[in-house]
Amino acid sequence: MTISTSSTTPRVAIVTGGSGGIGRTAAERLAADGLAVVVSYAGNPAHAEEAVRVIEKAGGTAVAVKADVADEAEVAALFDAAEERFGGVDVVVHAAGIMLLAPLAELDLADFDRMHRINVRGAFVVGQQAARRVRSGGAIVNFSSSVTKIALPNYAAYAATKGAVDAMTLILAKELRGRDVTVNAVAPGPTATPLFLQGKSDAVVEQLTLMSPLERLGTPDDIAEVVSFLAGPARWVNGQVLYANGGVI
Rank of each mutant, 00 (worst) to 15 (best):
T2M: 07
S7I: 00
V15S: 00
T16W: 01
G18P: 03
G20V: 12
G20L: 07
R29C: 10
D33V: 12
L35I: 06
V37F: 03
V39W: 02
S40D: 12
S40Q: 08
G43S: 12
G43I: 07
P45W: 02
H47R: 14
A51H: 02
V52S: 01
V52W: 03
V54D: 11
K57I: 11
A64W: 02
A64C: 00
V69A: 07
A70C: 05
E72V: 15
A73V: 04
A76T: 13
L78P: 00
D80M: 02
D80H: 09
E84I: 06
G87V: 03
G87I: 01
G88K: 00
D90N: 11
D90E: 11
A95F: 06
A95N: 13
A95E: 07
G97M: 00
L100Y: 09
A102H: 14
L104Y: 15
A105R: 13
A105Q: 15
E106N: 15
E106Q: 10
D108G: 10
D111E: 15
R114Q: 14
H116Q: 11
I118C: 03
V126W: 01
G127K: 05
Q128H: 13
Q128F: 12
Q128G: 11
R132D: 10
V134W: 05
G138T: 08
N142Q: 11
N142F: 15
F143C: 09
S144T: 11
S145H: 09
S145I: 09
T148Y: 10
T148P: 05
P153G: 10
N154V: 06
A156G: 14
A157S: 15
Y158D: 10
Y158L: 10
A159W: 08
A159I: 11
A159F: 01
T161W: 01
T161M: 01
A164C: 02
D166R: 13
T169Y: 15
L170N: 06
I171A: 15
G178R: 02
A185K: 09
A185I: 15
V186T: 14
A187R: 02
P188S: 05
G189L: 08
T191C: 11
T191V: 06
A192C: 05
T193L: 05
T193I: 06
L195T: 05
L197K: 03
K200N: 07
K200T: 11
D202Y: 04
D202A: 15
D202P: 13
A203P: 11
E206V: 14
L208F: 13
T209Q: 04
L214R: 09
E215P: 06
L217E: 07
G218N: 05
D221E: 13
D221C: 03
I223L: 13
I223Q: 12
A224N: 08
A224Y: 14
E225K: 13
V226N: 05
V227N: 11
F229C: 14
L230T: 14
A234T: 02
V237I: 09
G239Q: 02
V241Y: 07
A244S: 15
G247D: 01
G247K: 00
